[in-house]
């Protein structure tokens, strides 16, 4: 178990190193920031001074070393555009993105699993067939279109929910602002959360259904029935647990995707999150922000993968035994 854990952590560190290399290379290939920051009229001396201040006059290897050391301490330098520390910018906007991502993940996972189980158990009913057909729409429509359609229906036509923004927020602690405690914050969250989670929901639902159908046809389920266990116990205890093993992997990866693809939803709903920050950064070639965003998304994926691997251990005794033998 410990050996496995160490091995996985080392892998994760390696992945982060590679991503850092890519992020770092942005600084050299996406234009000259000094020109952008000082404009045409600056003197050569001004430029040299700024170059020195930003550390751009050092050899590449030294620059990379400093980049890594700083990144490990969540230090990503100064934003070229707003001249504020990148970390502050991200931290300011992280709560918005995390709240959106977590709510839509909860929505996608619970609805996905429940609907997946339902469509597997009642696969001949008209409702299950309807859900399956409707899910095709969720899979095939692009996220931004779903967002725009939802805005049109619920904000423009019906006027039930706000079309953009995060509503009122409340500060908790030093830096976290939450929209979950105000009515307007919650109302603002509904449409973007559905938009962001719909694709994952249909994916999870279809996966759960397929896995469940496969598990239900296994011998141990038949034997569980032959032992006289009730449908409830067979379906929700024996079948569901076996169904969830492959589903956990996909859910884990999808959570990463939800955070990463929040960019589109945030843009459509003008949600003041990290994704919107990234889009702005791209437009203004604000390389430190882009690099920091890349690193953050990579970290999210790596951490989730690690957690998924550990969850496997918790769920599947076969893995536990192998790990114990090592």
């Amino acid at each position: 178990m410990l050996a496995f854990l160490i091995q996985r952590v080392l892998q994760a560190i390696f992945v982060m190193f590679v991503v850092a290399l890519i992020s770092f290379s942005l600084f050299h290939y996406v234009g000259d920031p000094v020109l952008n920051m000082l404009g045409q009229e600056a003197t050569e001396a001004d430029r040299a001074e700024l170059r020195a201040r930003l550390g751009l006059d050092q050899p590449v290897v030294v620059q990379f070393y400093r980049f890594i050391v700083n990144a490990a301490q969540f230090e990503f330098g100064i934003s070229y555009r707003s001249a504020r520390p990148v970390t502050d910018l991200i931290m300011e906007r992280l709560p918005a993105t995390l709240e959106l991502a977590i709510i839509s993940a909860i929505f996608a996972v619970t609805m996905g699993i429940v609907l997946g189980i339902y469509t597997a158990l009642r696969r001949r009913s008209w409702l299950a067939n309807f859900i399956m057909t409707a899910s095709l729409i969720g899979v095939s429509l692009p996220t931004f279109l779903i967002g725009v359609l939802l805005i049109y229906l619920f904000a423009v036509e019906l006027g039930w929910l706000p079309a953009f923004g995060r509503g009122q927020t409340v500060s908790i602690g030093d830096w976290w602002t939450t929209g979950l405690l105000t009515m307007s914050g919650l109302r603002s969250l509904i449409l973007p959360a559905i938009t962001l989670g719909l694709f994952q929901l249909t994916l999870i639902m279809r996966l759960v259904r397929a896995e469940m159908l496969e598990v239900l046809s296994t011998d141990y389920i038949k034997f569980a029935r032959a032992r006289g266990l009730s449908d409830r116990v067979v379906n929700l205890r024996h079948a569901l647990k076996n169904t969830l093993i492959p589903v956990i992997t996909i859910i884990g990866l999808q959570l990463g995707t939800i955070i990463a693809f929040a960019i589109i939803t945030e843009t459509v709903f003008q949600w003041p999150g990290v994704g919107a920050l990234f889009i702005t950064a791209v437009r203004f070639v604000d390389v430190p922000v882009m690099a920091a965003y890349l690193m953050m998304i990579a970290l999210v994926f790596v951490v989730i993968n690690l957690v998924v691997d550990l969850l496997y251990y918790a769920v599947d005794p076969r893995l536990r035994a192998q790990g114990g033998g090592k």
Partner: peptide, 22 residues
């Protein structure tokens, strides 16, 4: 359902797959 296991039992062919692995 209450008859199965209580009055009629059943054993299947493959013991390797008859038990829930989890």
């Amino acid at each position: 359902v209450p008859l199965r296991g209580r009055h009629i039992g059943m054993i299947f062919q493959d013991p390797l797959t008859s038990l829930n692995p989890l």
